[in-house]
Write a protein that binds this DNA or RNA. Structure first.
Lengths: 107, 107
DNA sequence: CAGACTGGTTTGTATCACAAACCGGTTTAT
DNA sequence: ATAAACCGGTTTGTGATACAAACCAGTCTG
């Protein structure tokens, strides 16, 4: 009955972390975003943003592309198909879990 | 515009932890539940469940009542009004955050 | 040339989730 | 009567990790 609830316990922790959830939600909407845009949008410190992005990259959820805009470096992030799918799955699972409610213990 | 998103970053971490989210969702539905019921329902180990309950108690979100059922101890948990309110706020905030999407950076 | 800024990465620390070990008490077996 | 197994949890140890501060390579400005 409440299996949707129990499933919540092994939800994707990569996405579940609030900072990353924000990052992924943005990337899901805009398709590509550079580091500074993400920093402004999230309010995260650079260090924090950097490590979350690395974590998302390691998970295969985002690609990070480094180019030069004239002479200044520029880091562009995109959600991968895998990341997009994971985000979709995350939202669905979370929604089902929060809506789920067990029947009273006995009667 | 996407302030709902940024707000997500300071979402209530007490509730956000998946194991506790499951516990709170159950307690929100059933009004009171004993330790063993929660353990069966969540699939958590005893130690893990115990420490999450303590954490929820410390946060003022649940009350833990110890009684005896004949000769065996029995631990009963309830969501406090504060806990119920926090859960409601959590759900609303999460929902708004997930629905929120920023406009593309420039054009 | 010094100093400040840009665009990040690396390092240190404090927190925390988790399971294993433990514990007081009770029931069952010998 | 004693031991051994079980019940209902709590405490302890540890590995992971979120976060910010410090750092760094390069560029621009006075």
């Amino acid at each position: 009955m409440a299996d949707e609830l129990r499933d919540m316990i092994d939800i994707d922790r990569i996405i579940h972390e609030p900072a990353r959830l924000v990052i992924v939600t943005i990337l899901n909407a805009v398709e590509r975003a550079d580091f500074l845009y993400l920093q402004r949008e999230t309010g995260l410190t650079k260090g924090n943003l950097s490590s979350h992005l690395t974590r998302l990259e390691d998970a295969g959820y985002v690609t990070i592309e480094k180019t030069f805009e004239g002479k200044t470096p520029r880091t562009t992030c995109r959600l991968t198909d895998q990341g997009r799918a994971a985000f979709k799955a995350y939202r669905e699972r979370l929604q089902r879990a929060i809506d789920a409610a067990p029947a009273p213990p006995d009667a």
